[in-house]
């Protein structure tokens, strides 16, 4: 926190502040450009970028035609699919991860730490690495082109289990013992004692599960071929790769795709930070 002699502290801080503002703007510019391009024609977008003019970040003629075009091409179906898959994954995934985390943190049994090792290790191998052989198995089981196929891989998440387990470990074990003496079984202790205390970690783990599904791209193209089952990222990539690309529509769809997790993350940022902290130096 010290500074070179002779430079007043305020000047050093001012330089750092300028750096912080400049970097923030750099990260923000593509977002602004994406939003501006959503509300103007594609020809205006390209005209404003070469040669570059100030209006590159601001539409001269506001239009909602791109959004309308996205709606007409069925993007809302893809968006609804993505939302459905993500929400079901969060609900079911949280139940599965919380139960596993509870067993691994609270219930004493032989071999617990070995199982913890297996759980974290196997889920830390990125899903993409085994997606292709898994998609062959899914097609043998006739799961291709089902919502179930899209949901299943998101349900097991090592980071979610890890985050929840760390949180459970931080809850005083005297609570569980007191409940035991009152004759409560493990399920009751889990449901009535631990879960109500776990809200921040549940939100953090829920975010991890949600973002995994919202990002999904390789898996959906492996297990779905029908357009009505396209998830939002797949629908956008198809629109982008089409023979004649409607760039305005692609911008609008990408903006919507980014907006939903942005709202969720902004609203729940502090839970994300708490959950993230548990992977670090704590314990």
């Amino acid at each position: 926190m010290s500074r070179p002699r002779g430079i007043p502290r305020s000047l050093g801080s001012a330089v750092l502040l300028v750096v912080a503002i400049a970097v923030s703007l750099l990260f923000l510019l593509p977002v602004l450009w994406l939003l501006a391009s959503t509300f103007r024609t594609a020809s205006e977008t390209f005209a404003s970028s070469s040669p570059l003019s100030w209006s590159v970040l601001w539409p001269r003629q506001l239009t909602v035609e791109n959004l309308a075009s996205a709606v007409r091409s069925g993007f809302l179906t893809a968006l609804a699919n993505s939302l459905f898959v993500a929400v079901v994954t969060v609900i079911v995934g949280l139940a599965i991860s919380a139960a596993a985390a509870f067993a691994l943190a609270i219930i004493p049994f032989r071999g617990r730490s070995a199982i913890f090792t297996v759980v974290v290790l196997s889920f830390l191998v990125p899903f993409e690495a085994i997606a292709i052989p898994l998609s062959r198995m899914f097609s043998e089981w006739n799961l291709t082109n089902t919502l179930l196929a899209l949901i299943l891989p998101g349900l097991g998440n090592g980071l979610a289990v890890f985050t929840l387990r760390q949180f459970f470990l931080g809850i005083p074990s005297s609570l569980a013992e007191a409940a035991h003496l009152d004759g409560a079984n493990w399920f009751r202790i889990f449901w009535s004692v631990y879960l109500p205390l776990t809200r921040p970690a549940l939100i953090g783990a829920g975010l991890i599960l949600f973002l995994f599904q919202w990002q999904a791209y390789l898996w959906p193209i492996l297990v779905t071929s029908r357009q009505e089952l396209d998830l939002a990222p797949v629908a956008i990539a198809k629109a982008f790769g089409a023979f004649t690309t409607d760039y305005g529509r692609v911008f609008a769809e990408t903006a919507i795709l980014a907006l939903i997790p942005a709202i969720v993350l902004l609203a729940l940022q502090r839970y994300f930070v708490t959950s993230v902290a548990s992977t670090g130096s704590k314990e």
């Binding site: 990260f27 593509p30 919202w214 791209y217 795709l257």
Partner: peptide, 8 residues
Amino acid sequence: LPSAVPLA
């Protein structure tokens, strides 16, 4: 904020 943008 950009972390919210999916890779695609």
